[in-house]
């Protein structure tokens, strides 16, 4: 029986497990290995250099800047996403008429790729010309047109990057929050009403605690996603001349270091990947701790 079960189990799980070993575990191991070698333009290096790659990358201004860029991005994107997704979820959840319509409209950008969104944001909405959509709207209110993507001081390009991502992902998080709102038992609200709670009080003491888990999920997913931002940075800020020296999040940095048209320094890229993996693991663990404390 046990032997039969073992065979049956691997019949089901074996193909997937083999692929996971080859395309996830092997790359992680290989990466750790490469990071200890001088692996410029080769995947089978022979020149062992110990922790030199780590030392180089940790003293590379551009790498540290990329962590700073990510941090700044996270500071912009995470609070706005959480608050706006919550507002949309509450608005959609409270109406009776045309609820499905509004839910679809807000969720529809989920179907759109980051590349297409970047294209619309760059060529139309935030194009620097006077007829750009945002500049036109600014004009209605007496504002003067701006070069959104090209303005570095103040860094207006952040407005472009943050709004693109908001548009793409708010609907997804709204759906998660609506599902969580529907799981809050109705009698909790009835009990609050009997106790004479104002709408604000019932939001504060019934809705928010009921959404706690979902809000933590939105926050964590958002953080992990922001950490991996690449598509909109590459497509909005990059052009035929390459990528500007600023606003490079970690993946853009890694892309140009290890695989870009310059030199392919896989050892250094691997060291960067290992460091980034450690940072995100630490951040996930810490945020879990903090939220468990806060309960």
């Amino acid at each position: 029986m046990t032997r039969g079960a073992t065979r049956t189990f691997w019949l089901f799980v074996g193909p997937f497990a083999a692929g996971l070993l080859l395309f996830t575990y092997l790359p992680i191991g290989w990466s750790a290995y490469l990071s200890l070698f001088d692996a410029r333009n080769t995947v089978t290096p022979t020149d062992f250099t110990g922790f030199d790659n780590y030392r180089d990358i940790l003293t590379d201004r551009a790498f540290l800047d990329s962590i700073g860029t990510f941090t700044l991005f996270a500071v912009f994107i995470i609070p706005t996403t959480v608050v706006l997704a919550l507002v949309l979820a509450l608005l959609v959840n409270q109406i009776r008429f045309a609820r499905a319509f509004f839910q679809s409209v807000f969720f529809l950008p989920f179907a759109c790729s980051y590349v297409v969104a970047s294209l619309v944001w760059k060529m139309s909405l935030f194009s620097g010309v006077d007829s750009g959509v945002v500049n036109t709207v600014l004009g209605w209110f007496g504002g003067s047109p701006r070069a959104w993507i090209g303005t570095v001081d103040p860094p207006l390009y952040w407005v472009v990057l943050v709004t693109a991502r908001l548009w793409l992902q708010l609907g997804f998080y709204m759906i998660l929050l609506i599902a969580a709102l529907r799981r809050i038992p109705r009698y909790h609200y009835e009990a609050a009403a009997i106790d004479g709670a104002t709408p604000w009080q019932s939001f504060r003491h019934v809705t928010l605690p009921g959404l706690r888990g979902a809000l933590i999920a939105v926050l964590t997913l958002n953080l992990i996603n922001a950490y991996q931002a690449f598509d909109e940075f590459y497509n909005i800020l990059g052009d035929s001349r390459g990528y500007p020296p600023f606003a490079r999040p970690p993946l853009v940095y890694l892309y140009y270091t290890s695989l870009g048209s310059g030199g392919q320094d896989l050892g250094r890229g691997s060291a960067g990947a290992v460091i980034l993996a450690l940072v995100i693991a630490l951040a996930t663990l810490l945020s879990g701790r903090v939220f468990r404390r806060a309960r």
Partner: peptide, 18 residues
Amino acid sequence: TLMVPTAVTFVPSFVVVS
């Protein structure tokens, strides 16, 4: 493996595939 952000492994995955 869910803990390892997939996009962070893109350099080593590229190495394997190439």
